[in-house]
């Protein structure tokens, strides 16, 4: 797995809809002379199997909005029950990969699914 480089991604919203699709929206930070393409990559925690989903890039003023709608039902990470989500940007300077995260400086309550499939929140650092 390539190391995360100077490229970045600032999440503005993520969610899941009734079709079971993961939606992701945020701003890409080119971090170099340009950004030609971007994608979200889901990596099986144990298998390290990767599934890549192209991001839609849309200039928004001075910034570049990146979004995707990922059909999780089709996710092929056999043997895994956990997977991590990355943002990959590609440009003249090569490829950079960064983990999609909450805003760690302010987020104090983090969501998780209970064993019964319900939504709960856990206090960060608890």
């Amino acid at each position: 797995m390539p190391a995360a480089s100077s490229g970045g991604f600032t999440l503005t919203k993520t969610g899941i809809n009734s079709a079971g699709d993961l939606t992701l929206t945020g701003f890409a930070s080119p971090g170099g002379p340009g950004l030609d393409a971007a994608a979200f990559v889901i990596v099986g925690r144990n298998s390290q199997v990767e599934s890549e989903f192209p991001a839609l890039l849309d200039p928004a003023g001075q910034r570049l909005e990146a979004s995707a709608c990922i059909p999780l039902r089709a996710l092929d990470v056999a043997g895994d029950s956990l997977a991590d989500v990355y943002f990959v940007s590609r440009g003249p300077g090569g490829e950079s990969r960064t983990r999609v995260t909450w805003d760690r400086s302010v987020a104090r309550w983090l969501p998780y699914p209970t064993k019964f499939g319900n939504l709960s929140l856990k206090r960060k650092d608890s």
């Binding site: 993961l22 996710l75 029950s81 989500v85």
Partner: peptide, 25 residues
């Protein structure tokens, strides 16, 4: 409140380090 759609399916959650991950529930 659970998650939309029928399970078992992948559910987005935050790891202890506030990173976005998915869990099959």
């Amino acid at each position: 409140i659970g998650f939309p759609g029928s399970g078992p399916s992948w559910r987005p959650y935050a790891t202890a380090h506030a990173s976005l991950s998915l869990k099959l529930v």
